[in-house]
Amino acid sequence: MEEFSNSEAPTEENKKAAIKRSNSEGTELVVKVPSTQDLIIPLPTKFSDVGENLEELLRMNKIWANAITAQKPDFFAEHAKSQKPHILWIGCSDSRVPAETIVQLGPGEIFVHRNIANQFNHVDLNCLSVLEYAVEHLGVEHIIVCGHYGCGGVAASMTNKQFGIVDNWLCNLKDVYWKNKKLFTSELSEEERNGLLVRLNVKQQVYNISATSIVQRAWASGNKLKVHGWVYDLGTGLLEDIDIGVESEAQLCDQIYRVIS
């Protein structure tokens, strides 16, 4: 068994060489984590690194499960009993924005819903069901809407091109653009226009979530619940809080959206 610890900081070349040796020799490659209080840096393995072999993914899963069990023997047994996440994450389906990975939290810590361009549509029963379960049954205290710069859905919504069924889904984004059209001046570059709509979209989804009877019932019951708006930068790996938090009916974008008297 070949091991790397966080303190060793192996190079990319060493990691790839170790993966190849592990595959050819049938040995296990383990990244040792000294303490749960230390930052966990996942091994950046690509599908191509393992020969695009699904059987290899199953083997890597066993390595992962065994490594977790070695550190905390009762981890999976405890997780099988129940989940108690404090956060509901509504993010984009983009494969480069995995919720748990970018905030370094483990299984059971975040309840996740993802769709194209991280939208919350009031007629989307899937999203509404996720919200209701998270708020009323899991008792989450934070709802994070996370968009990301360079979002393909956002970029597509700012064109007149046809992309298929997704065109209907992107109409909501076009509405956000239309509502804020005066902000999209000719001085803005394409990248700046995209970034602006990414932030405006996150803001709109925060307001959409806050306008639901699900969230307002929680507030009326005295539950601690806040809706946040974040944006992720693919180029730096950093998250940005765009300061659009809503934690009471008084902070709704307009009192016309108040549904609980």
Rank of each mutant, 00 (worst) to 15 (best):
N126E: 14
A67H: 02
P42S: 04
F120E: 08
I116F: 01
P42L: 14
N66P: 05
Y149N: 03
L88E: 07
H148G: 01
V154A: 06
E141D: 13
D74M: 04
I87F: 12
E100A: 12
N121G: 06
S157H: 00
E28S: 11
L29F: 01
R96D: 08
K32M: 06
A67W: 02
T27Y: 09
W64L: 05
P98M: 14
L138A: 03
Q83D: 05
T45L: 13
T36W: 15
V145C: 12
I87A: 13
Q83K: 13
F120T: 14
F75K: 06
G106M: 01
I116A: 01
A70V: 08
M158S: 03
L128H: 04
L43I: 08
G106E: 00
T27R: 08
I143W: 04
L43N: 11
K32Q: 10
N160T: 12
Q83A: 02
S24E: 09
P107C: 02
H122A: 08
A70T: 10
P44L: 15
A156W: 02
W89R: 08
A70L: 08
V145N: 03
S24H: 06
V130Q: 03
W89S: 00
G139L: 10
I144T: 02
C127V: 10
E56I: 04
A80E: 11
A156Q: 01
H137P: 00
V123T: 01
K46S: 14
P85G: 07
V97E: 01
R59A: 06
F111V: 00
T27W: 10
G51M: 06
E132P: 03
V130S: 01
M158K: 02
C151A: 03
K84R: 06
G91P: 00
E25K: 15
G91L: 07
L54G: 11
G139A: 06
A134V: 04
C92H: 07
C151K: 02
E56D: 05
L58D: 07
G147T: 02
L29V: 07
H122V: 08
L125T: 08
F76E: 09
E132H: 13
T69S: 11
A67Q: 13
N53C: 13
I110R: 11
T101D: 05
K72N: 09
E109M: 04
Q119D: 11
I68L: 08
V135G: 10
M158G: 04
Q37M: 09
Q71H: 13
V30L: 12
G139R: 11
V130E: 05
S48I: 14
E52D: 15
H79S: 09
V154W: 03
Q104W: 09
A156P: 10
G91R: 10
I143P: 04
S129P: 04
L88N: 06
H86S: 15
E25F: 10
E78N: 13
H113Y: 06
L105S: 09
G153W: 01
K62Y: 11
L58Y: 15
A65M: 14
N66T: 15
A65C: 09
H79A: 07
V31G: 10
G108H: 01
H122C: 10
V33I: 15
L125S: 14
H79L: 12
K46D: 08
T36H: 15
F111D: 09
N121C: 07
G91S: 11
Y133L: 09
